[in-house]
Design a protein around this nucleic acid. Structure first.
Length: 168
DNA sequence: GAGTGCGTATAAG
DNA sequence: CTTATACGCACTC
């Protein structure tokens, strides 16, 4: 029996999202494509088929507001993955707003400069968009590279963060 | 053990 | 610009 999961839908400045959390923190934040229920299904699979899930859109809206309106990313998280994945995701949390680094640089910070593709794969599996800023990892030559939820959203997120910096 | 992937470098069309 | 080859390593099947 897995932990109880509460999920909900909300509207972000970049389109609809799903947010999920356990008692320990946010465990999922994804931009939604066509398949809302597919995302929920994968969520349940990842956390255990016997995981009870309940829907709470108000919870999702509160978190959406904290992240996208208040620009506060200091939120408790509940990560589930391999040691390597969690190591990568936590390293992403140390990249400040408005900064980008290359996949290679990230691999180097994890003392694994040759594991570029492995790192990129782990980045690609980030379950918590925006809060864990996987969008700040770009190609070494400056091009943006791929993004799980579409390279267009990646570009918009980076623009948005750049403007946040310029604001203050 | 074989196949895969949000990369990177180089060579070639 | 695009394809092709090679390198490297965590992960999946």
């Amino acid at each position: 029996m897995g932990k109880e999961i509460v999920y909900g839908f909300a509207e972000s400045p970049f389109g609809p999202i799903v947010v999920a959390r356990t008692k320990d923190g946010v465990c999922d934040l994804q931009f939604l494509g066509f398949n809302r229920m597919g995302v929920i299904h994968e969520l349940a699979m990842h956390w255990g088929v016997y995981t009870p899930t309940t829907q709470d859109d108000d919870m999702a809206k509160r978190i959406e507001h904290t992240v996208f309106e208040e620009n506060n990313r200091n939120i408790d998280l509940d990560l589930k993955g391999t040691e390597f994945q969690i190591k990568v995701w936590k390293e992403l949390l140390t990249i400040p707003l408005g900064k980008t680094i290359s996949y290679q640089e990230l691999a180097g910070r994890l003392s694994n400069p040759n594991a570029v593709r492995a790192v990129a794969t782990a980045v690609a599996q980030n379950p918590i968009a925006v809060i864990i800023p996987c969008h700040r990892i770009i190609h070494k030559d400056g091009t943006l590279g791929e993004y799980h939820w579409g390279s267009e959203i990646k570009r918009q997120l980076l623009d948005w963060e750049k403007n946040k910096l310029a604001d203050k």
